[in-house]
Design a protein around this nucleic acid. Structure first.
Lengths: 210, 210
DNA sequence: GGTATTATCTTGACACTGCAAAGTTAAGCG
DNA sequence: CGCTTAACTTTGCAGTGTCAAGATAATACC
């Protein structure tokens, strides 16, 4: 007679307890987002990918927006990382650093368009969440310190008001290029080979800080 | 005995044929969009506002995205109009004109944040539609001719490649400011009084064209 | 080790959504 | 008047997010 084989699998072919469902759901959610975009994103699609029931995420994330909040936080981590990668390969002077940071921002958006839109073009993540707020703020803080480094390099540190303009100009330039390119709205620039495109992005970034 | 009173009202209290349902639906859709955002937008909510059955729009717009396409087209018309309004009140020299155009772009986004997001941050409108494509292109063309005017003013007209950089820089700057400010992400700038804020936007715009 | 508790996951139900099909009303036109 | 067609309603269906209740496994405690 057959043993009940209760040791590792349920009759459905998978263990009742997933083990690491929380991060598996974030992975599945990113895949779902990549393939169907925010506007096609569905919780039941995510759970299908992860092979669990449609109500499984509730315990970990509350509702769908809770899962998207965690996904957005992962996005900000990756954005920061991409910017650092580009800065590491750039000359160490402050202006080149901020140009590289802007190029990293745009490259992130091009490599993760749906995630970028979740982070900056959606109301679904809960931006009041402590985790998300902290990581998003730290991305902003890096920008501010880069701008400060530029103005310090120039000998005469600017007043706060003037520096605020530089911060707004730098962020807006990177963000505008990122959003338009990721949406395919700026194809005269977007269809160029990556290295040439990135040089031009750096040129445009350099104008923002004066 | 009662007359069937078939002259003007149905038993539901409204005429069976609306008369101008098409534009009434676009109005209702804009209100729905303003109140619930793209991500809360629902066709049934729109028809409730317009006081018709939930399937009434199908005849005029096909599906929900068809209605959003018409709404996006109205958005581009209003964007162009706002930019023209700001240019009309600005000095006629080319640089001031492009600065004013950028300020108009941002002001439009601040006054119509949900519409702006529909136009630039959504995949739902059918951007291949002839009407929408034409009006969106004409907005882009105005930008290109403004940039050309600047470079012509400077005596030596630039080559196409250089002008393309100026176009990308100007659009990205305006778009980045618009998107970030409308999303409340740039509050050091966004919370200033409108006239001061607009002067700073013009300053940032002026850096984009060199 | 055995039992109670708690965390994790499933099942079922509900209201809402967009869309398609079929029916109803009115308008245009001979 | 009658026919055709446009405009709108009703009905039905599959898919969605969320809630409540149940099932199962891990853990805590004795």
């Amino acid at each position: 007679m057959l043993a009940p084989m209760k040791d590792d699998k349920s009759p459905a072919g998978r263990p009742y307890h997933h083990g690491d469902l929380s991060s598996a759901l974030i992975d599945a959610a990113e895949e779902e987002l990549k393939q169907r975009g925010i506007e096609g994103f569905s919780m039941r699609g995510v759970t299908k990918r992860a092979g669990v029931s449609h109500a499984a995420p509730a315990h970990h994330f509350g509702d769908a927006n809770g899962l998207l909040t965690a996904l957005a936080a992962r996005g900000f981590e990756r954005l920061i990382q991409t910017q650092r990668d580009f800065r590491r390969r750039a000359p160490s002077n402050a202006r080149k650093q901020i140009e590289a940071s802007g190029v990293g921002y745009v490259v992130f958006a091009l490599e993760n368009p749906a995630l970028f839109r979740l982070m900056f073009g959606s109301d679904r993540p809960h931006f009041g969440s402590a985790d998300l707020q902290r990581i998003a703020e730290s991305a902003f803080d890096e920008l501010v310190s880069l701008v400060r480094a530029v103005t310090n390099d120039q000998g005469s540190p600017k007043r706060d008001g003037a520096m605020m303009i530089d911060v707004a100009a730098a962020w807006a330039t990177a963000h505008g290029l990122a959003d338009l390119l990721a949406a395919g709205r700026l194809n005269t620039l977007g269809t160029l080979p990556a290295n040439i495109r990135n040089r031009r992005i750096a040129t445009i970034m350099s104008r923002a800080i004066q």
